[in-house]
Design a protein around this nucleic acid. Sequence first.
DNA 1: GTCTATACCTAGATAGAC
DNA 2: GTCTATCTAGGTATAGAC
Lengths: 210, 210
Amino acid sequence: MAYRKTPAELERLEAARERLVDQATQVVAEVGWANASVTAVAAAAGIAAGSVYQHFPSKAALAVEVFRRASGREAEVLSEVLHGDGDPVERLTDGVRVFARRALERPGLAYALLAAPAEPALGAERLEFRRRYHELFAEVVREGTAAGLLPPQDARVTAAALTGAVGEVLVDPLGTPAGGSDGAVADLLAELTAMTLRCTGAQHPTTPGV
Amino acid sequence: MAYRKTPAELERLEAARERLVDQATQVVAEVGWANASVTAVAAAAGIAAGSVYQHFPSKAALAVEVFRRASGREAEVLSEVLHGDGDPVERLTDGVRVFARRALERPGLAYALLAAPAEPALGAERLEFRRRYHELFAEVVREGTAAGLLPPQDARVTAAALTGAVGEVLVDPLGTPAGGSDGAVADLLAELTAMTLRCTGAQHPTTPGV
DNA sequence: GTCTATACCTAGATAGAC
DNA sequence: GTCTATCTAGGTATAGAC
């Protein structure tokens, strides 16, 4: 009985925890938060229901971890694109396009993160992440205004509006089983970027890109 | 024992049901769906918990009724404004302004209807009402395009974007206890209408109105 | 450390008295 | 028709064997 766990033990534990979070994410994407019981999640991860509590103190804690993990990834991707190359307006449309495309590729997960009914704890978490999106968008809007590419405006309002607008436009396609296959996705992305440009007050579409 | 209830009886029942729905709405606005237990709602309506089931077959049915009632009112008000006088762009900004002002006047209820975590049944209901908003907005956007006031665009996407944008912009103020007192509300409304105009691509602000 | 079996708790729903 | 008291189900969390 060692007083400290060996590195190998820690690694195994960590791996099991990872697997649990991954599988829970999968289950949530498939059946939603409401039906993702501890039993179902544990079964998916190949462990017993009771063993979940070796890794998380409560179901809510696991749910929060799942949400943070997945939402964090999206926020990071968005952040990278928004801080990338090109003028602010280009980056904004690129960001929206990438965000939307990723959502449409994993509709179940995106729906769970963006809109699906969930416990209060997750509601709070969602609100926090939406604020993070607000900040990311607001920063770029301010840059655009400073560069004279966008008219004067309250960047926070525009950023919140963009967040809500993109989410709302996506929810319907995400809800319908086959969110739209081939060209429908391209059309939707084009309309989304056009809306983004209008919403910020950009005068000329800069990149008519894919 | 009459085979049919007398008109007086029916009226009394109907009144009790009304009172129950009203009080349930009140409770939901105050404590949210999660904490609006059958017991709490019944207490507010001055009846016993068991008696709730004289009027509704289940808690979910009552919740849906509460949601439909309240959301229906807002949709009607919005519809009236959008179908009122003036050019399409004016009506659009008026609609957004009225919707937002009403929400800010009843923050608890608005938050419950727009964003608060709720059971799956209500999630579906919410989605349905958001579609109703989409349609209302889309119609006016199409009119605006037809009148040459707005550039060509997919009205459904713009309408969904407006719905999401307005909701998202409102959620933060609605969440904070004193949503903003005096001039803050006016500023927010002004920014919202400006955003609405940009989002639809309207070139010149038509009514700088209150 | 992981499983099996079970305790427990909350909240919705019901039965029967008045 | 309404209340009180009770039942029940479902799912989280835990105890103890292996």
